[in-house]
């Protein structure tokens, strides 16, 4: 029987083209990096989902193991893991973000 948390994560990742696991909510981000990640995606104007894992420690641990990435926020685009803005910013600087998002949203 697959781990229920793992299944829940897989469903969430599949359900949202841009998914951020972070601290707090869109209206009330609880950490600078989560806020930075929201602002990053606001620039592109595509819809994204923020799931607060501050209140879900088991999911937070499962995510850290699954991605071998110890920190939050964690960003998934089109089902792929991309770390956080330390990864996204250099990608955007090299012009890789726009085509990636266009492909994800099938534009």
């Amino acid at each position: 029987m697959a781990d229920p948390i793992q299944e829940e994560i897989n469903k969430e990742v599949a359900a949202h083209k841009i998914l951020i696991y972070g601290k707090g909510t869109k209206q009330m981000p609880m950490c600078g990096f989560t806020r930075e990640t929201i602002q990053f995606f606001d620039k592109y104007g595509y819809p994204f989902e923020l799931i607060d894992v501050l209140s879900q420690p088991a999911k937070r641990d499962a995510l850290a193991k699954m991605t071998n990435w110890p920190t939050l926020p964690k960003v998934f685009i089109d089902g792929q893991f991309y770390g956080d803005t330390d990864i996204l910013d250099p990608m955007a600087a090299k012009g890789e973000m726009e085509p990636l998002l266009k492909k994800a949203f099938g534009k």
């Binding site: 071998n68 990435w69 110890p70 920190t71 330390d86 990864i87 250099p90 990608m91």
Partner: peptide, 17 residues
Amino acid sequence: NLLDRHRMIYQALDVPM
């Protein structure tokens, strides 16, 4: 790639984190 580079740093700093 960038992700693996950052993973290496996180591994090196695992204890103080």
